[in-house]
Nucleic acid binder design. Structure first.
Lengths: 341, 341
DNA sequence: GTGAAAGCGCTAACAC
DNA sequence: GTGTTAGCGCTTTCAC
């Protein structure tokens, strides 16, 4: 059935030993250039492909990296994953995908069932509401490096890759302020997630810098979906003092908020400005188009993977925390003169 | 460093042989219930995890399935992949992801570099413009089953999973006709792809059934992105006879077309109706909302994976071609009275 | 019902 | 610079 060609076949063909073949294939120096050329040639002719199970067994490596994230059905994560896959593929590594559906239980079960013999490293974006991250610490202790991206736990010392959540939020809110909005609310994510907190801090800092009021009822924490954004907006509209602008933790929630505003016939921009975070393509599809802080999703995937390989290849690589800058993209939703032009 | 516990450790612990442990772990019948219980217990205590590299080597299986698709940064593919991942995970299989970026060269190179020793089966959605599918046939001949989904090649006899492209297109176009549109154009995908062709056939059949004109200049073939859809619409607006409705091959192109119409200040629905295909969430974000034929993306992933496992486990499993139904979701873009209500 | 031993394909001492 | 051999963790005959 599966008639695989092995280094043994190459060796037999050339009347040399398997170890020479192995060495030639892996470009080890102490092998005659001629022999090497012949080996490479026959390998090509015979259509030889290395058996990763065997190399893995022999070397104690798997050629696989695992990636654990909540879901891939949104712009951000699917783009990060694309960056990861591309980089890993270029290095000859396989990407094994695990989805938590943002459930801490599922995340835990994935980790517990993970055979660390089958994975050389892990890239993870944690689920919200993870009480504890000790399961990740265990994996690291067992010798499997982990690089966290986007949703990173503060309690673990390892490499992390993030967009500039604080500055991005600050820039987004300051932009609103510069455009004349004064009563700025924040539709936040769930409490406890590091980047949610950073975006909140950026929001607060911008308000403070410009001496604008901070009202607790103007800060709403809830899940990440569009529906949550919509409901949060309805809540805000019930405030004693209704805000004149919204900074949302992500574009999905910003879009939910905009839908709520449309339903209530409130003019977006003119009456209430809206700014999101991500630069989801949907932000140009909705009308008015959504001002947002663009996250470098692809680069985050790329960089995370690069760092992971450093950990894999240098056993005591000092961990790094990398922040990748993004930029504010101004569109219609934050312009108070949008309908007068 | 990585101090892995193996069946040898369990055996030593219990003073029995590794083969007994192996048998107990795999639930083979000819092993004493008591011994088995003890083995399971110690395995649990010791936190034993099987080494897939070793089982793979010994059994000639890898516990991995590969998935090859153009990209994952859209609703359809990311949802299919979610379905695949979920099903595979439940069966204890790893999903290894490969992205072609819709490039036939990259697809070919992925296949050529693929070591079939590392993969038990393949799920693929081919890239457009693949001249030939012989590389896939080779893989199948080497004993690796492939199940195709969505973008399936007609030339290969193996299991395939598709949505109901023909009926979906037919239903979409008939819906336009029933709503009074008479000059219906089709913004198609690239030529040569099976489902593009089926949607075209469904479109043509609906027009024929209702004795409506078929004009070649009303059928435009191009890529799948929103930008192509927008350009295609500009083309159509230059027709000698401008159509009064558009059936687009997917929602992205439909949205592109809507953006073109908005730019030209043409009332969507009232002047020109639009129907898409997919039910991308963006179809509810755009305004007016987009009527579309919903594809069962998650189920397609699920079913494809299920079929693949049948091929993997029963060597001569007769291939199946499965069509999963979808349904038309009527929204605002196909209602000619949308602005009069 | 259980153990001994060979072998999956490859790497890595260790010889020469 | 090349060959020999042991061994990675597991499965699987073949004995008993």
């Amino acid at each position: 059935m599966r008639n695989l060609v092995t280094i043994k076949d190459i060796a037999k063909n050339l009347n040399i030993s398997v170890s020479t073949v192995s060495r030639a294939l892996r470009d080890t120096y102490d092998v005659n250039q001629e022999t090497k050329a012949k080996v490479l040639e026959t390998a090509y002719q015979l259509n030889y492909k290395p058996n990763y199970n065997a190399t893995g067994l022999a070397k104690g490596q798997s050629h696989n990296i695992g990636i654990i994230l909540p879901w891939i059905t949104n712009y951000y994560f699917s783009t990060v994953l694309t960056g990861i896959q591309q980089f890993a593929y270029s290095k000859g590594y396989n990407v094994i995908l695990f989805l938590t559906n943002d459930s801490p239980e599922r995340e835990l079960s994935i980790i517990q069932n993970l055979s660390i013999a089958n994975i050389d490293g892990l890239l993870v974006s944690i689920s919200s509401n993870s009480d504890s991250c000790s399961h990740f610490q265990n994996i690291i202790n067992e010798g499997i490096p982990i690089v966290f991206f986007d949703r990173v736990p503060s309690s673990i010392s390892t490499s992390k890759v993030m967009q500039d959540d604080y500055s991005g939020a600050f820039a987004a809110v300051e932009h609103l302020i510069e455009n004349g909005y004064k009563k700025i609310a924040h539709i936040a994510g769930p409490k406890g997630l590091c980047f949610t907190e950073k975006r909140l801090q950026g929001y607060l800092a911008a308000l403070k810098k410009h001496n604008l009021p901070i009202r607790e009822e103007w800060i709403i924490f809830s899940g990440f979906s569009q529906e949550y954004g919509e409901n949060d907006m309805y809540e805000l509209l019930k405030s004693e003092e209704v805000p004149d602008a919204i900074f949302a933790v992500n574009d999905r929630k910003a879009i939910g908020a905009m839908i709520a505003l449309k339903n209530k016939k409130i003019a977006i921009g003119k009456e209430i400005g809206v700014v999101g975070f991500t630069n989801d393509p949907a932000s140009t599809i909705i009308s008015p188009s959504l001002t947002t802080f663009a996250e470098p999703a692809f680069d985050i995937g790329h960089k995370s993977c690069e760092l992971l390989f450093k950990h894999i290849n240098k056993k005591n690589f000092i961990y790094e925390e990398v922040t990748i800058p993004g930029k504010l993209i101004v569109r219609e939703s934050s312009r108070s003169n949008i309908f007068s032009s």
